[in-house]
Design a protein around this nucleic acid. Structure first.
Lengths: 124, 124
DNA sequence: CGAGTACTACTAAATAGTTAGTACTAAATA
DNA sequence: TATTTAGTACTAACTATTTAGTAGTACTCG
C-alpha cells in the first residue's frame, strides 16, 4: 500500500510557511496571503488547516467567531525533519553528496562554492 | 487541480536509483533489487518503468524477449533538479538556510559542521 | 509436440493529496 | 426585525501516485 507523506506535503508546507511567518493566523489571513500568489478557494484553505491541526502541526483556539491557529511545532524542527527525509530518500543519508550539489548550484556565491568543495575533499 | 510532481516521485526515484547503479536493467533486475528492501509485485515495477519511459527518464530497447532499460538522463542532472525543487519549495531558493540545517544535522562530521557554519557567517 | 516459463500489454483499483461546494449558524447592519 | 455577512462543518469529487491482476504471446525443455 502507498505510504502517506512522512512530513509536509507541498500545499501543507505552503500554508505552514504563512502561519510561521505570521505567528497567529485565521483561515482568512492565510487565504489572503495565498491569494497573492495563486488562486484558491477559502474552503480549500480551511480544509487544509483542519488537516494540519489533525496531524499536529497547528493548534486551534477559538477567538470571537473564528478559529485562531498557531504553529504547534517550530519551523526549524519541522523543516529539519524535511531535510532529513530528503537526504535519506535522495542521497541515502549522505550529506556530502547534497553538499556537492549545492556547490555546483549557481545560487551559492563563488566563495561559498569554493569552501563547500573544500569540505568535500577533506571528508575523503 | 493538483499539479503533478515536477521531478521524480518517491517510488520513481527508488527505481531510478537501481537503474543508475546498474547502467542497464531489465524489469526483472529492478524487481529483484527492490525485493531486497521491500515487498513489491513484478507487474508493479513494470508499470512504473513504463511510466518512467513515457516521462523521458528511461530509454527502452528490446533484447531477446525482454525490454532493456537504460537511463535517459544522468543521475547528477536529475538529482540536481530535485535539489533545486526542494530548495525552492522549502527555502524559497535560499541555499544558506539549507546549509544551516546541514550544519546542525549530526550526520556531518564535526569538522564539516564547523566549516559550513563559517560559510554562513561569511555570507552575511 | 505439449507443458511450463518469462515476459508484455492492458486493465483495474486503492490510497493520498488537493480542491471546493452546500448547508447551517451567529453576528452585524440597515 | 429582516437581510446581509463571515464563519464553520460536512460532504463530494477529482487528480496523482502506487499497486497489482489477468490475458496473451513466444520461448524452452522434456
Amino acid at each position: 500500500m502507498r505510504t502517506p507523506h512522512p512530513t509536509l506535503t507541498p500545499q501543507e508546507l505552503a500554508i505552514m510557511k504563512v502561519v510561521w511567518r505570521r505567528e497567529k493566523s485565521t483561515v482568512r489571513d492565510v487565504y489572503e496571503a495565498l491569494r497573492e500568489t495563486r488562486q484558491v478557494a477559502y474552503t480549500t484553505v480551511m480544509t487544509m488547516m483542519k488537516i494540519l491541526e489533525e496531524k499536529g502541526y497547528l493548534k486551534k483556539t477559538s477567538v470571537d467567531r473564528a478559529h485562531l491557529y498557531k504553529p504547534a511545532r517550530p519551523r526549524q524542527q519541522v523543516v529539519g525533519a524535511m531535510v532529513r527525509d530528503f537526504l535519506d530518500r535522495v542521497f541515502d543519508g549522505a550529506s556530502d553528496s547534497l553538499l556537492l550539489h549545492l556547490a555546483k548550484d549557481n545560487k551559492l556565491t563563488e566563495k561559498q562554492r569554493r569552501i563547500v568543495k573544500q569540505i568535500i575533499e577533506e571528508s575523503d
